[in-house]
Simulated assay, not measured.
Amino acid sequence: MTWTIYLSGEIHTDWRDRIREGVAAAGLPVNLTGPVTHHEASDDCGVAILGAEPDKFWHDHKGAQVNAIRTRTLIGKADIVVVRFGEKYKQWNAAFDAGYAAALGKPLIVMHQAEHAHALKEVDAAALAVARTPEQVVELLRYVVNGELAGYTDGQTIAE
């Protein structure tokens, strides 16, 4: 089985690349999906495709609707959803994605710094795991997908 993992959340650091590299190095049968991470393209997709909006509210609204087609579809198809909350910006979209995934009954892994634990306590409560680093996410995926736990070398894994 190839697992589909949706990577949601902040777009300003290399966390997706670190997960992609870790998954590849571990040889996990995983397909990673996610939102459009080119900030300007994501903001402007609605007006670029469907026409200009003179009011910034409607410009952003149109883009959010177009992006939601991708987001809802890919979260719906995901086996696991990983949501990263970054340090610098408030990611309301990430919180929405976490809630949407939880409402769909998707297994949810949340990743954020310890100092955000209080602000994200409801999101964390809906998650099945709360990680601090992309490397922890890779180890979670190694265990869940292959039944392998680092440091345990008896060769036994959970049968598919």
Rank of each mutant, 00 (worst) to 15 (best):
A52W: 02
A94R: 12
D55Y: 04
H61N: 12
Q156R: 14
N31S: 09
A125P: 01
V82I: 14
V36C: 15
T2L: 08
K62D: 00
V144L: 15
L28H: 03
P35Y: 10
G76E: 08
Y143T: 00
A68Y: 09
A125W: 08
R16V: 03
V47G: 07
W3L: 03
K121A: 05
W15V: 01
D17T: 04
L128W: 10
A95S: 09
A48M: 10
T157E: 11
Y143L: 14
T73K: 13
H39V: 04
A103T: 06
N67Q: 13
H116K: 15
R72N: 10
M1T: 04
N93Q: 11
W92F: 11
E87R: 06
V30Y: 10
Y6P: 01
A101N: 11
A159C: 01
V130L: 05
A119K: 14
V23R: 02
R70I: 02
G34I: 03
V83I: 04
H116L: 10
T33H: 01
N93Y: 08
G51K: 07
E115P: 01
L104W: 10
D97H: 15
A78T: 04
G46P: 02
E21W: 01
R70W: 14
A114M: 03
W15S: 03
P134S: 08
K90F: 14
